[in-house]
Design a binder for these strands. Sequence first.
RNA 1: GGCCCCAUCGUCUAGUGGUUAGGACAUCUGGUUUUCAUCCAGAUAACUGGGGUCCGAUUCCCCAUGGGGUCACCA
Length: 478
Amino acid sequence: MNNIRTRMAPSPTGEMHVGSLATLLKNYAFAKKNGGQFILRIEDTDKEREVEGGVQAIQEIVRRYGLDWDEGPGKGGEYGPYIQSERLDIYKREVQTLIDNDKAYYCFCSKERLAEVKEQQMASKQPPHYDRHCRNISVDEAKKRVAAGEDYVIRLKVPADQEITFTDLLRGEITFHSNLIDDQVLLKSDGYPTYHLAVVIDDYLMKITHIMRGEEWISSTPKHVLLYQAFGWPVPVFAHIPVFLNPDGKGKMSKRKGMVSAASFLDRGYLPEAMLNFFMILGWAKKDQEEVISLEEYINEFDPSDLSSNSVAFDIKKLDWLNGVYIRKLSPEQLKEKITPFIAADFPADKIEQVLPLIQERLVTLADFNLLTKFFYGEINYETDLLLKKADSKEIVIQELNETITLLESLSDWSLTSLEEAIRGLQEKKDWHRGQFFMMLRIAVTGEKATPPLFETIMVLGKDLVLARLKTALDKLA
RNA sequence: GGCCCCAUCGUCUAGUGGUUAGGACAUCUGGUUUUCAUCCAGAUAACUGGGGUCCGAUUCCCCAUGGGGUCACCA
């Protein structure tokens, strides 16, 4: 097999969508599996929608997810430049050969006229279509008008009455009819290429062998095939990857229904490893059905033709589960490093290392840290009634609190074993109801019904804070 | 609406011309546990419908239905 080359070609028009990153992962894995190259190319041909810092942001997010590219911005490579706005002369040169070969033509229609034509077509219930008004203007005349300073675009001369068929790795042959395809604009009036022109030229010149992109590109593919044919270039292999649906399975995953940028998931405390793993198992299954998969295993086994051709719901619950799996796998050092950016600024630094093991298996995302640990410092608040839960009388609770305070005040060794021995001993000696007593203590000490193990928690809180809170509980009952 | 794509538990999937249709997440129930979480055990739950082909279709074909995508001088 010849050298496999894949690419991802995002536009710097905003934050990268999780779907784009999932597609990027597949391109990356397929290239790596075959010892080929994964290329990152920036498609910045829409200068109106481009956002500042966009090119940089793309590179940054790919790296934050732990991935990398072999050729592209910042890396160079044999087939550069890899930023389309730096390749304008290439597109002009190539489009000229199209004009010379009667595959493309100058069009002088104004946007106003185009809008009018469309409006009329809509009114008469015709499908909107460019009416090919300029298709038969001779090249000589066109050149005169260009020289006279008229605005123009270059359009593809789509042949009539042709079946256009291409092969999709997931779906097999797909056929479109050329009569349904517009004479696509190839070169815009500002001199920039459209996506359709640039993508074909670049994929050819960069020797891309496999085009894996979102399913939303299927209906554009016949235009690209036409272009390859017009240039006389071989058509690469296509694999159109199903889009992500909203978690409820309805509609393409969109900003309206939540955060969809690849960065936002990391910012909300999902681990890159968990995200990548999640992308792997959406629409694909490992041969042995295992769902916790390392990048290395994925690269070994992934093949685009095994991809499901269904659109898939972005199941946050499953992502949450995977994230928990990856968090639990972390060593204490790794956890501390990864969670530090999420820890509230006023959290007592000296307690972090003691607290982490208490909450590690309780974290769904790294950002849960503050919610799970807020009672380790600062004020706690709870309903007094909670102290009386399951208790026979208020007096018993008061007695329990008093005796616990006395016990802890005299406790010289504030270690886990000492605390457990003492408190458990007291409960057994007095024959207090276990569940009631420990829950009451938990509420008094943390203000929460669900916490890490009680003795560990008491130990980490420290003697002063624990005694103060027990006394506060007593006051609340008085 | 035109064109294109898709169709197995709620979700993501495995799978076969004859299977008790398997797994994971979610849900529910038990067990462990002073709570929660983890962990362990178990349960509920699917081949969209109708026609064919065939001795036999979830599997192959057609149609319907449903879902999705796309119809720019945006990518």
